[in-house]
Simulated scan of single mutants.
Amino acid sequence: MNPILPFIFLSSISLGTTLTLMSSHWMLAWFGLEINTMAIIPLMAYNHHPRPTEATTKYFMAQATAAAVILFASMINAWTTGQWSIDQMSHPAAVGLASLGLAMKIGIAPLHIWLPEVLQGLDLTTGLILSTWQKLAPFALLTQLPPLNQELFIAMGLASTLVGGWGGLNQTQLRKILAYSSIAHLGWVFLILQFSTPLALITLMTYFLMTFSAFTMFKINKSTNINSLSTSWAKAPALTAFTPLIILSLGGLPPLTGFGPKWMILTTLTSLDLNMVATLTALSTLLSLYFYLRLYAMSITMPPNNTPGTLPWRLYTPKPTLPLASTSMLTIMLLPILPTMLSTLN
């Protein structure tokens, strides 16, 4: 691929997200979402192999279906109320359809089926873009929808935390584990989105931070499955020491960064008398924590599971590690200032 093409595609992805973030009209926001989708497809299909091609096809079909639902919802609202403004959407059917379409674009349960298979077929760099940047625009639109479907958001958020936990239990491929981790974390965001937008934003940004650290760590170690983590000590010993902390932060264990948003969400749900929802969500975290602990065990406490071949050894690599160093420290040590950030946004 010509070196200028990735720059063009990444610029188009940024343009699509920026257009959606700045739009107050449904058609402009829809155009931004479509630019986002079409710009990442060449990056996904860059490797001429059946797996990336299959993943690209599944991604395109899921995103096209979601885009059609969103466009249909905006047309229903324009037909019934005469308004194309995003913040003026007031018809219950239009709000419900728009919420479902945006949830499908993100990968929220029960509209999550495409996400694990698509992420498994991509390389780690494109998977990182799909798991982080591609979710900004849909969430920006979700925050502008009126709170007419709080029960729908609670149900989908709770389902996502459960599906994300159950789905990752028997997985051995790291990209599928990160896909189910994404579903579970975004379920937490969905739970609180209708009640506290600043807290949902902090939860989303914390998820982006932890996911960036995890994807970058696996990319530097060239790890694609659980067994390959047991030999990562030979490639980067210092990075291997940080690996368990990043994994446990994804699991939400105190005193790491991942614990902060979950603790504040459970506190908010309890203050709203949603005690059963808070209890079920907290219990669903134990499912996710189990497969995070499996990664922890394979990365630091298990002996290498070597295949009959040459063991990868520590060699100098010119890969940039400054972004990983910065995000890893934030992934581990950001907990004390999260309440201050929330009070500032409020």
Rank of each mutant, 00 (worst) to 15 (best):
M1I: 07
N2V: 09
L15Y: 09
L15W: 13
L15K: 06
L15R: 08
T17H: 00
T18R: 08
L19P: 04
M22H: 08
S23I: 03
S24G: 08
M27S: 11
L28E: 04
A29I: 00
N36E: 14
M38A: 11
M38F: 15
N47A: 14
H49A: 14
P50H: 10
T53E: 12
E54G: 05
T56F: 01
T57S: 05
Y59I: 07
A64Y: 06
T65G: 05
A67Q: 03
I70A: 06
I70C: 09
M75E: 10
A78Q: 10
A78D: 10
Q83Y: 09
Q83I: 05
D87E: 13
A93I: 12
A94H: 01
A94L: 07
G101H: 06
A103P: 00
K105H: 03
G107F: 04
I108G: 08
I113Y: 12
L115K: 04
V118T: 11
L122M: 10
L122G: 00
L122E: 02
S131L: 00
S131N: 06
A137Y: 04
F139Q: 00
L142Q: 07
Q144H: 10
Q144I: 00
P146H: 06
P147F: 02
P147S: 11
L148N: 07
N149A: 13
Q150W: 01
L158W: 02
L162S: 03
Q171W: 10
Q171C: 02
R175L: 11
L178H: 07
S181D: 03
S182A: 13
I183G: 07
A184W: 00
H185E: 05
G187H: 04
F190G: 01
F190M: 15
L191F: 08
P198F: 12
L201N: 08
I202S: 05
L204A: 08
L204K: 00
F208W: 15
F208R: 01
A214H: 08
A214D: 02
F215G: 04
K222R: 15
T224Y: 13
S228A: 14
S228V: 08
T231Y: 08
A234C: 06
K235T: 15
A236H: 15
A241C: 09
P244N: 11
L245W: 15
L248P: 06
S249F: 13
S249N: 11
P254Q: 15
L256D: 05
F259I: 10
K262Q: 06
M264P: 07
M264F: 14
M264Y: 12
T267Y: 07
T268M: 14
S271E: 15
L272D: 13
N275C: 07
A278P: 09
L286H: 14
L286S: 10
S288H: 02
L289E: 12
Y290C: 06
R294C: 10
L295R: 00
Y296H: 11
A297K: 09
M298N: 04
S299R: 06
P304H: 13
P304W: 14
P308C: 07
G309E: 08
L315M: 08
P318G: 09
T321R: 11
A325G: 07
M329P: 05
L330V: 07
L334A: 15
P336T: 11
P336V: 12
I337Q: 10
L338G: 07
L338R: 05
P339K: 14
T340Y: 13
M341G: 03
T344Y: 14
T344W: 15
